[in-house]
């Protein structure tokens, strides 16, 4: 059974690039581009991993992460955060909010791929 990734990102070209990468590696990729209902989408889709952009329309990736971690079922859901704002302050905030991995844009495709693989492998199957 193929692993399932939910990509929450609003840049069409970046969505296409990541979808291409993960699909080739055998992942099922769902995408969503709006911050406001992102948490609902995560709960509905219940992916094995979430790739989350920081700057999203309506609601920031940081807020989404906090809301998500506040839900008891999603304490350990792997979340890979990608951001174009690579300041250390943002990294600190994300780690406090419970991010699993934090990567800055532009990223290396190989790194994203291995990060996704690692994060999902670490989580024991439910």
């Amino acid at each position: 059974m193929s692993r399932h990734v939910l990509l929450i990102e609003d840049e069409p070209n970046i969505i296409e690039a990541i979808r291409f990468l993960l699909s080739r590696d055998g992942w099922r990729v769902d995408t969503h581009a709006d911050g406001r209902d992102a948490v609902d989408v995560i709960r509905r889709v219940s992916p094995d991993l979430v790739i989350l952009d920081m700057m999203l329309p309506g609601k920031s990736g940081m807020d989404i992460l906090s809301d998500l971690r506040a839900l008891s079922d999603y304490h350990s859901l792997p979340v890979l955060m990608l951001t174009a704002r690579g300041q250390s302050r943002d990294r600190d905030m994300a780690e406090r909010a419970g991010v699993s991995r934090f990567m800055t844009k532009p990223f290396s495709n190989a790194e994203v791929l291995s990060a996704v693989r690692d994060l999902v492998a670490e989580v024991p199957d439910p």
Partner: peptide, 25 residues
């Protein structure tokens, strides 16, 4: 500066990602 950084990094992310795709595939 933070805004500029963000605005520059976003297109560069696409450029890099697709450049790597073209190179690696």
């Amino acid at each position: 500066l933070s805004q500029v950084s963000h605005e520059l990094r976003t297109p560069m992310t696409s450029i890099r990602a697709f450049s790597e795709i073209l190179r690696d595939n």
